[in-house]
Design a protein around this nucleic acid. Structure first.
Lengths: 214, 214
DNA sequence: TTCCAAGCGGACCGTGCGGTCATGTTAGTG
DNA sequence: CACTAACATGACCGCACGGTCCGCTTGGAA
């Protein structure tokens, strides 16, 4: 980052956008190991896992972590970006499935499965910090909303449910399961089932509160 | 705490159980302010709120906090104990309501409302550390299980749901809502509605995974 | 009014964190 | 080879936290 003084005295930040020179072999290897270790560590101990532990797990020095990512938040954002992008691609691909209701269920299933490895709390914490992440996130959100709209049109989910509801509720199964120690790794499926049943039209009771805006 | 050396050389800890001498007037006042401030701070910033901030909010010194509670965990446990006890009393009182289904819904409503002010994550974190808390918690759990059993017997909730499911799911609405910034404080009611609909017998689909043990 | 145990408070300590930097190492080009 | 830019490293820094401690203040019984 180059910092200059512009006319009027205000600071001008010129961010040198990654002119993606290919990484040296060792650097690329370390970067892969780092991302993998960080994902594993975050999955096991949450976002509070220390950079030092991550570096150790990756078999590299702590300084190397900060060579690849300027801050811990950027490291988190990189991992999250990958997941969000993957989920968005899945959501889009499910948009032309035969059964819209099943497609939505399949998506929520995959989303919960991914979250098992990384809590989605970044959606709250890492919003606004990283431009690329924000883009991927809104791409994911619009795909989910389309998925929900199709399911509603097909009568597979209740009419008073909105895309945002699914976005929020897909975080619930794993969170709920995190309370039970030594839980079966598939336990979240039970609660996804219950929650999805709550989204179905049969036996739906009027909701007391409107859905929040995206 | 008195630490002695017993026969064989091992340490013997004699915990002087609170021989509840009445607190001096100022101490009682400070203790009330402390508990109130801690509850508010934890509600706003989570369990990571610092002891120093809590003390400042209560208008007392940091040392005073540790005079009343030997550690931060004990402070948390005290607050949690109160809430758990309150919820348990409510659950028990709802056990002889006319409509078992409505009683369960009412309980979950109250539970979610309380959690709005204090995440229930203590159930995971503070287990095993505090004996009194463990007692209150198991009291709460058995009351909830009874509540669910009554609702099942009345046909108000699906047969394949267990008490533990409700215990876990009652944590979900507030967690889900925590992702939306500046959310309406009543938004959790929407998701409680959806989740409770998922517990109803109408439109229930078989669940893939059995309920965890208590 | 006296007196002291109970209570108070904030300077202080050890620890672990995210992040930096000067120095040493290595991949890859010629 | 040799040579350099890219890269790796871990000691180090500043900070904020939970928790301690000791000198001071005060409630309340006599």
């Amino acid at each position: 980052m180059l910092v200059l003084t512009g006319p009027g005295g205000q600071l001008v930040n010129l961010v040198l956008v990654t002119l993606d020179r290919p990484l040296r072999a060792d650097a690329a290897r370390n970067r892969r190991a780092l991302l993998e270790a960080a994902a594993a560590e975050f999955a096991e101990r949450g976002l509070d896992a220390s950079v030092a532990d991550i570096a150790h797990r990756a078999g590299i020095g702590k300084g190397t972590v900060f060579r690849h990512f300027p801050s811990k938040d950027d490291l988190i954002a990189a991992i999250v970006h990958d997941r969000v992008e993957g989920l968005a691609a899945l959501a889009v691909s499910l948009l032309d499935a035969d059964d819209p209701g099943l497609a939505l269920l399949e998506f929520m299933d995959a989303a919960a499965g991914h979250q098992q490895q990384l809590d989605l709390s970044f959606l709250r914490d890492a919003a606004g910090v990283n431009e690329r992440l924000d883009g991927a996130r809104s791409e994911l959100f619009t795909a989910i909303i389309a998925l929900v709209d199709r399911a509603k049109a097909a009568g597979a989910v209740r009419q008073d449910v909105a895309g945002m509801d699914v976005i929020l509720l897909m975080c619930a199964p794993n969170h709920v399961v995190s309370f039970v120690p030594d839980a079966d790794p598939d336990l979240w499926r039970r609660y996804l089932g219950i929650i999805f049943d709550g989204l179905r039209p049969e036996g739906a009771h009027p909701l007391a509160h409107p859905s929040p805006a995206v």
